[in-house]
Design a protein around this nucleic acid. Structure first.
Lengths: 131, 131
DNA sequence: TCAAAAACCTATTGACTTGATAGGCAATTG
DNA sequence: CAATTGCCTATCAAGTCAATAGGTTTTTGA
């Protein structure tokens, strides 16, 4: 299940895409429009900054702005940056200790196929597709 | 992410499909073969019984057996029975209070599409496909 | 016949994740 | 220079996950 982190991240990106006119948008405005606590959005937008998807401008008159055009973002990169890798099952996680049953496991191929299927879906969608 | 409940449920079903020769298979055997605690499997198989996917036979010589042929089960029905509905996002859950933003939400259509995409995947796979 | 073997039932638990809230510091500008 | 805004760390309550534990009932097969 996709958590609020990923969902809100996408809404932030969309809000920026729809309202930015070359100038930075303060988080307060986004919070009001999206009806989400500004404090919570701060946590989420931090990851977007760290990941290089948006840039923050401090000080009065500051705010956030996209780094690229909306059509140059995929939904996948936004989502996976906020949610983490979103592996279908624990066996496929980065840090997972290699399962000794992997060779003979009847279900592992299914999870691998599903994992790719999901990633294909989100990487094929662009931010601009949602506007 | 798919939890152990759903994954183990599928492995139980597969084990039954591969080892049942008309007679019931005791959970102890499945637990040994699958290297999963029998006690934990009890919890999981209970849902499968309640959902009518397998039948349990009490008493000495008892165990569990499939109710249908492996090709007549979809992976989806096994998984969603164990995991619950697996809605992509909270907004789409059964019991979710209707979101007042639903009408104008830019992201809801994406989640709906994804939800269907995932369900299509699992409902199109048969248990026999994994054997 | 009766004891072993099996399903079935209820409760509990520790670790982790989720969805926030709170308070304050740093940077920038009108 | 004060208002505005981003940025940082910490904390928290509630819920979920992955089991474990101990007992009761049912049925067979020796």
């Amino acid at each position: 299940m996709i958590s609020t982190k990923g969902r809100y991240a996408l809404r932030i990106m969309l809000d920026l895409a729809e309202h930015s006119a070359e100038k930075a948008i303060p988080l307060k405005d986004i919070a009001q429009r999206q009806e989400i606590s500004k404090k919570y959005l701060e946590i989420i937008v931090k990851d977007l900054v760290k990941g290089g998807l948006v840039k923050g401008v401090s000080g009065k008159g500051g705010g956030y702005a996209l780094c690229r055009k909306p059509e140059d973002y995929t939904v996948g990169e936004i989502l996976f940056l906020s949610e983490g890798p979103m592996n279908a099952v624990a066996c496929l996680a980065e840090n997972a200790e290699k399962c000794p049953r992997a060779e003979k496991c009847r279900t592992l191929p299914l999870w691998k196929e599903y994992d790719k299927y999901v990633k294909d879906f989100f990487y094929s969608k662009k931010l601009s597709d949602l506007m």
